[in-house]
Design a protein around this nucleic acid. Structure first.
Lengths: 344, 344
DNA sequence: TTGAAAGCGCTAACAT
DNA sequence: ATGTTAGCGCTTTCAA
């Protein structure tokens, strides 16, 4: 059997309560006894039993992260893991443990309810892809410390944190204008792709601010695949030779777009500027390198971690949303060398 | 306060011991009392306190995964997360929890020692990037259940599991030969890149089996970046027009290689066949699509999970290595339409 | 088949 | 400032 608090107490000639107080840094202990105890711990190479501690304190110092993570998630959703990295950092800093659990949306409420009743963790960080109305009611009734990463697409009481894709769209178009481009086109994912939608909304809002309409014919939608980028670009080149820049909703579309431009010997950034979102995986590798509005997904994880810890400490605070800001990474693909004097 | 075992016992008119036995499926309980107890649990909506259970049983049902995971790991090392996905699945299946902890190689031994002494987990899965000789001694002395993912590059007592990159190399070259290619070149990462080295070893071994030498001039090494692939390919095209195929050590090199071939209007797969390793991230997207020898990294995680659980149950079993097998994914880039009758 | 009771190792309220 | 002691909720041995 391992060394316990009793052994330490015996060797130090004190009670176990005193040892406990020394471990937990109570001020009501004289330096002399504290030293005796510390020495005894040292001598015996004592390590307090973590589970016994959790048990006595009724707290686990553990946060569970819930999302659907299955075969291929590592490849198909690196951002999820980038968030996890940030989350781990924030929790680890405060001596909290991070437990990862794969789950489907319908299992989540039962799992959460059970986990709370079994007191398996102190709180939850939940990816928006596994939330549901049932989960919302559960949280609302039981006041379970949680934070959702991603925006719920229904009315709810969740605390959530997300990326501001509208703002990212605004930043992309603003950058193009600043660089002297005047007639951008947009190639997005399918109509039901919310990320593409929000980015587009941001773009349109900037046009509106200047009281200009974004010509709808210059908005293309399709699969988030290189083929869509390729075909849409050819279409744009064929029909609208006024276009001087293309905003691609994501890296996959960008890849096809750039292929098409190179094939048609269209100069980037001279003839057409290209900008996209998220610095992954093609934007760095393509030639020319592509300017992007990037989002610090790691930081989203960090913020989620900080928030859940805060919530665990002070369950009565309530923030519904909390947002991280995109960053522009300027590269060759938008480096138009023309005069910037014209106004749109 | 939540419902406890006492409440259940009282309602069922039994002792807490009986309730415990019912929960744990002891056969020495009559069906009648078992039913009474189950009904009482139902009625009270009883959920046993997980921490109390761990405490009484002196087991945590938790495995800790240790690796260096920091900002950008999600992007730069998706395979790591793919493994984690597999690991989670294997553990979850057996009701074990997976705890993720970021750590550096020098912190690992202290962390592990402390975690074991505090009985924070039942075992460890450790990425080879954070192992050390000190850790090896620690494990050897204390017999801590563990498994390392990746091959230790020093003599050790670790249990480890890895991918067989030599075999992957053999499979790549064998595929080329089978398709009728006769003069392959190899573009690898830098000399100290073990993955590239092992893949090359496998290739060479197949040549040796046929008592043929692999012409050293056709082996290029450099950064694992598109630029290296591009430049090496141009060099090969310029100097050695006998070459009819290229084996790229990874996707980044492949990307540059294919760019160069397309630029020089070399037909893939007609003039030159291309094959690489790991189906990520470019092999699927490039045109033509690239044949790869892929490795099921998810499965590596699953195997690691199964192994660590086994080890926790039966600590005296010992397996030093345990390997998952690569899979050939045949695509356009090696589809030479020539006769296959010639021999090398 | 069931129950009494002694842990599991630590914390915290209360007493001194 | 320190010690006593009663938990925390469940498991398990041993006796009935």
């Amino acid at each position: 059997m391992a060394i316990t608090i009793k052994d330490v107490a015996k060797l130090a000639g004190t009670s176990t309560a005193t040892v406990s107080k020394v471990m937990n840094g109570s001020y009501s202990i004289s330096e002399a006894t504290a030293n005796k105890v510390k020495q005894a711990m040292e001598e015996l190479d004592y390590h307090p039993n973590a589970v016994a501690r959790m048990f006595a304190k009724q707290s686990t110092k553990t946060v569970i992260f819930l999302a659907t993570i299955e075969k291929n998630s590592g490849y198909s959703n690196p951002q999820l893991f980038e968030m996890i990295c940030g989350l781990e950092q924030a929790l680890s800093n405060k001596k909290y443990a991070l437990l990862i659990k794969n789950i489907s949306p319908d299992e989540t409420p039962d799992y959460v309810e059970n986990a709370m009743q079994c007191r398996i963790c102190d709180g939850f960080v939940i990816h928006a892809s596994v939330i549901s109305k049932r989960l919302d009611s559960l949280f609302f009734e039981h006041e379970i410390p949680h934070i959702v990463i991603g925006t719920p697409n229904f009315k709810s009481h969740f605390c959530w944190i997300d990326i501001d894709n509208r703002l990212a769209g605004e930043m992309a178009i603003t950058h193009l204008f600043r660089k002297g481009y005047q007639r951008p086109a947009y190639i997005g994912g399918k109509e039901d792709d919310n990320i593409s939608n929000h980015r587009l909304e941001g773009i349109i809002s900037v046009f509106e601010k200047h009281s200009v309409n974004f010509d709808e014919r210059l908005i293309k939608r399709g699969e988030s695949e290189p083929d869509n980028g390729y075909n849409s670009t050819l279409e744009i080149l064929g029909k609208y030779n006024c276009v001087d820049s293309i905003i691609c909703a994501n890296n996959y579309i960008t890849y096809g777009c750039v292929q098409a431009l190179i094939e048609r010997k269209v100069n980037i950034p001279g003839d057409i500027g290209v900008i996209t979102f998220d610095d992954y995986p093609f934007s760095k590798v393509l030639r020319p390198q592509i300017s992007v509005v990037d989002i610090d997904v790691f930081d989203v994880g960090v913020q989620a971690g900080k928030y859940i810890l805060h919530k665990i400490k002070k369950p009565n605070t309530y923030v519904q949303s909390y947002i991280t800001v995109p960053v522009l990474i300027e590269r060759e693909s938008t480096n138009k060398r023309e005069t910037r004097l014209r106004k749109i």
